[in-house]
Amino acid sequence: MERTEIRPCRAEDVPLLDRHLPAPGAPARHADRFARQEAGTGTYLLAWRGGEPVGHGQVRWDGCAAPEVRAAVGDCPEFNGLDVRADLRGRGIGTALVRAAEELVRARGGTALGLGVAHANPRAAALYARLGYVPVTAYTDRWSRTDRDGRVHEEADPCAFLVRELSAD
């Protein structure tokens, strides 16, 4: 089994992400997440195998922006945008990214990590349940994206926000 390396994104990684893990309909996704990391409000974690990026997810240190979630969990750090290359799903890469995010939160003295999962994504929901995340509140994840032609699209997904209490071990 090939080893997976998890580490924070570096500036030189962004073009590789765009090439190996393109974001159709959201061409600046990787650059935006790296910019959040540079601003100190996030840590953009990347999974690597064989010198190529194969997955990613971001710890948002300021928590989820959805009002329903903030009312339920305050500014609990959120792990969002978890994605693994389709041909490598089910091989532990997503689990490794989530566990790395948990370690980052613990290292900063945090005691919980939250994440959202769309109702239309039962495979991710099963992964999070297996990792010990429990539903806290329902919410609608809203965001906008700008396509390559400069048109802005408003998006919304019904979701559940899940939280895992992190032990000190």
Rank of each mutant, 00 (worst) to 15 (best):
N80M: 08
N80S: 15
N80F: 04
G81I: 01
G81K: 00
L82N: 03
V84R: 02
V84K: 00
V84L: 03
R85Q: 14
R85N: 02
R85L: 14
R85D: 14
A86D: 15
A86W: 09
A86T: 14
A86N: 00
D87E: 15
D87A: 11
D87Q: 03
D87P: 00
L88M: 04
L88S: 07
R89D: 06
R89Y: 03
R89P: 02
R91H: 14
R91Q: 15
G92E: 00
I93P: 08
I93M: 06
T95W: 01
T95N: 02
T95Y: 00
A96K: 12
A96M: 07
L97F: 05
V98P: 07
R99S: 12
A100M: 00
A100H: 07
A100N: 00
A100I: 02
A101R: 02
E103N: 09
L104V: 04
L104F: 09
L104H: 13
L104M: 09
R106W: 06
A107T: 07
R108A: 11
R108P: 07
G109C: 12
G109M: 10
G109F: 09
G110P: 09
T111S: 15
T111C: 13
A112D: 11
L113R: 05
L113V: 09
L115Y: 01
L115C: 14
L115S: 14
G116W: 04
G116N: 03
V117M: 04
V117P: 01
V117H: 04
H119Q: 11
H119R: 09
H119K: 03
H119S: 00
H119M: 03
A120C: 05
N121L: 12
N121K: 11
N121Y: 09
N121I: 05
P122F: 10
A124P: 09
A125S: 12
A125M: 06
A125I: 02
A126G: 13
A126E: 14
A126V: 10
L127Y: 08
L127K: 08
L127G: 08
L127M: 10
A129I: 03
A129Q: 13
A129S: 14
R130S: 13
R130E: 12
R130N: 06
L131M: 13
G132V: 08
P135M: 02
V136D: 04
V136I: 14
T137Y: 08
T137K: 04
A138C: 07
T140P: 03
T140F: 04
